[in-house]
Design a protein around this nucleic acid. Structure first.
Lengths: 246, 246
DNA sequence: CGAAAACTTGATTAGCATCAAACCAGGTGG
DNA sequence: CCACCTGGTTTGATGCTAATCAAGTTTTCG
């Protein structure tokens, strides 16, 4: 069911080892190599692979020895940890231009599972390539540090905004977070109730009740099974009201 | 009440601008400059200040423009954010050899308040000094990246271990975390009930009830007002039992 | 010593978990 | 094609956990 590309990228299937893909990459100016010119890209000795995943597939797993980082080009990826007794906790989400698996650059194992929520395209960037580039490109290290800081900011946000207060408040904040990853038609990805529970530390029944309530309040309108349209005005109003009442 | 040293270190009082302090620093081999030899330390143009804080004093505040990072040499510091309506959330703790305020190196404002929990000694390391050193010491950048990763690991741990599950479980995990910062006599710093509430997202009454219960169970024995002795065996037993029951 | 802050404990209530049942959509095999 | 199954979802009934409100005690500090 779930395929892992972190260690053994296959030369066929979703794997596409053309470095040229970078020069035309839609997220390049925001991504890691935004500061590199085309000449520098041509000189790369190692392959940047283009990977496609369907929702539910695993990009990499916690405890694996990581030999690459990944730039998300489209779709949403969730970072989660699950304990031996089957309990899951989604720690954060990652969307366009985000860089995942930074710990691999330090020779550490991956700290969490990275699982595609929607259909996802990512670039696999080998660690050795980063090492090669940083030798003559000190600007890249600063870029990497900014990536770490961004990950840290996200972690803090989940701690402060999504792990605190009553269930309804947490759900509203989650919807706000999901709106950051809305597609071009303005639709957000709507997780399963189980996943919502793992994100917000509540049971799936509670998540279901909350979503039903928000639908009745016209904050949310499901579109198909895994998507929804948000009314940002109603959402914002609900959040304000929610903040006022504490 | 709370003094801020981040922007304007005073030449008198707790401020001690001797670079020599580094060569004899008790945490140097674990800290940022562990890899620097004495000659390199002598060449530093900028002062590393030695700062002493009492419990409750602020090291720096969120939103300040940071011009320095800080190495904790002794004591415990808490990182917290408080919203305009007075709600606080402690995001994590930092103890010996930890490096705080990394975001200052990227020209960002501090992301949280850093407040001394116990009496604390820290080194103030100006950003310009780091910049100077990284020019001819690429190993330092890798060291910095490890610091970022460590902060991220801590953030993840708080998310997974201390922001999830029933109140008693979170309190037990907090005590385990506090045991990492035990002093030489084996005593842990015991936060106020308010602070426990801000760390674990519960009311101070609930925190008080839990601590009282744990005292009755001999997991915890208060020593003075702000300290306690832990029975690690009892604590571990309680945690196992707690994990089994879910 | 007196006031303020922190802590403890009790009574009540609200919010969420748990247990349970029914519903629905998509997929499989007869 | 339909019966069936499975996994996700919804909703209801009930109970437990932790918030809230309240009072009293201890500690701290000017």
């Amino acid at each position: 069911m779930s395929t892992v590309y972190a260690l053994h990228p296959q030369p066929d299937g979703p794997y596409n080892p053309q470095t040229q893909v970078c020069t035309s990459c839609s997220v390049r100016q925001f991504a890691l190599f935004g500061s590199l010119d085309e000449a520098a890209l041509q000189r790369l000795h190692y392959h940047i692979a283009d990977i496609h995943l369907e929702g539910g597939q695993t990009l990499y797993s916690a405890q694996q020895i990581g030999s690459a980082v990944f730039t998300v080009r489209s779709g949403v990826v969730r970072m989660e940890r699950s304990s031996d007794n089957g309990e899951r906790r989604v720690m954060r989400l990652a969307g366009g231009t985000e860089l995942l698996g930074l710990e691999a650059l330090l020779g550490q194992t991956y700290a969490a599972d990275a699982i595609a929520c929607t259909d996802v395209t990512v670039c696999r960037i080998p660690r050795v390539l980063i090492e090669e580039l940083t030798n003559d490109r000190p600007a890249l290290t600063r870029d990497l540090m900014k990536r770490w800081q961004r990950a840290l900011d996200e972690a803090d946000e989940w701690l402060v905004e999504l792990s605190r207060g009553p269930a309804r408040h947490r759900m509203l904040r989650l919807l706000l977070k999901l709106s950051e990853y809305a597609d071009d038609r303005g639709l957000i990805w709507l997780p399963t109730r189980q996943d919502m529970g793992a994100m917000l530390d509540m049971t799936f029944e509670t998540a279901s009740r909350l979503i039903s309530a928000l639908r009745r309040e016209a904050i949310l309108e499901p579109v198909g099974a895994r998507q929804a349209r948000l009314s940002m005005e109603h959402l914002m109003a609900a959040l304000r009201e929610d903040n006022a009442g504490r």
